Simulated assay, not measured.
Amino acid sequence: MKEGLVIKSTGSWYTVKTNDGEVHNCRIKGRFRMDDIRTTNPISVGDIVEFNQEKDANVIVKINDRKNYIIRKSTNLSKSSQIIAANIDHAFLIVTVNYPLTTSTFIDRFLAAAEAYGIPVNLVFNKIDRYKNGDLTQLNELKDIYQKIGYKCFEVSARTGLNIDLLKEEMKDKINLLSGHSGVGKSTLINLIQPGLELKTGEISESHASGKHTTTFSEMFELDFGGYIIDTPGIRGFGTYNMEKEEMFHFFPEIFKISEKCQFHNCTHMHEPKCAVKKAVETGEIAESRYDSYWGMMSEDEELKYR
């Protein structure tokens, strides 16, 4: 029996790196399912697994307990989920206010999912070398919202290399996840952070201002300054998973903090009188866009939340 870290997953085969640096191709035997998660991929990048040599293949027989993972809906219609990565020390959500647009709704859903599973997140605003006046205004408004809540924000340019050194400093000796829409520049950033990888990059579709998928599966790369970086496929939508509505406000730090002042202990912060959260939105203490995201996640139909 050997133990190792899953550094690449293609859905049917897994690349596992053992502590002594050896790399093994492994598969899973039969129907390998996690008891508590209905998922399309029972094993993900970042998992610690145990495997045996059987005949002509290495077979994974056990997944060690995860400290966390980040998960999303697998498709618009499926009730299954897809685990993007496991055992993450830090997540970096790559955001572009243009080329393509990243909406605040998408950002808030990702942040809520990360909060639910105890994963710290930094926001990385990329392509700032392309931003004009309106874009810069929107950038500053978004940074103001998220920094006030406690999320660290970086302004970077994959084209010019601006502030890449700050990202490296933040990532040192950690397992880092990079995520975001297709076209926001994840692969280009990773090529800058760890030269020599030469990950494939794609062009933005000018007609739709959106990116094409260049990463088709998650893969983990070792950083020469210490730690790992996980590249993930571009995400178009981010459906919440396994979040009970009565707990939803826990995953919005500023709403959770102010909710202590509500008149009712079971306040949903939607319809109740004397709700401290609604009052904080009116006074600007809570950003309206954040409250709108919370309202949307609370209001959506069970069937629709898989979109």
Rank of each mutant, 00 (worst) to 15 (best):
C275D: 05
R307Y: 12
Y306D: 12
I84L: 09
A91E: 09
D47M: 00
T103W: 00
R66C: 11
I255F: 10
K200H: 12
K17N: 04
E272V: 03
S78V: 07
V281L: 06
Y146V: 07
D129F: 01
I175Q: 07
D135H: 10
I83F: 04
P253Y: 09
A112H: 10
F264M: 11
N133W: 00
E300K: 06
N126I: 01
G183Y: 03
T232R: 02
D301S: 14
L199T: 06
F249G: 10
L139P: 03
K29N: 13
D173A: 04
I149N: 07
R290L: 12
I70G: 04
D20R: 05
R72S: 01
T283I: 01
V277H: 03
W13S: 15
K305L: 10
C275G: 04
L199H: 06
K200M: 08
N242I: 03
E272H: 01
P100Y: 01
S12F: 13
E247R: 12
G202M: 00
I193A: 04
P42W: 04
I60E: 04
K168N: 06
A112M: 14
A91N: 09
D292Y: 10
L223H: 00
V121K: 10
K67W: 04
N58R: 02
F92E: 07
V16M: 02
Q82V: 03
I286E: 09
K17A: 08
F217Y: 15
A113S: 15
E169Q: 12
V45N: 03
N41L: 05
G134C: 01
Y228K: 09
I164M: 10
M270N: 11
E303R: 10
D35L: 15
D20S: 11
F264T: 13
A158F: 01
I83P: 07
I83V: 15
N25S: 14
L136E: 13
E22F: 01
S207G: 11
V121A: 05
H213T: 15
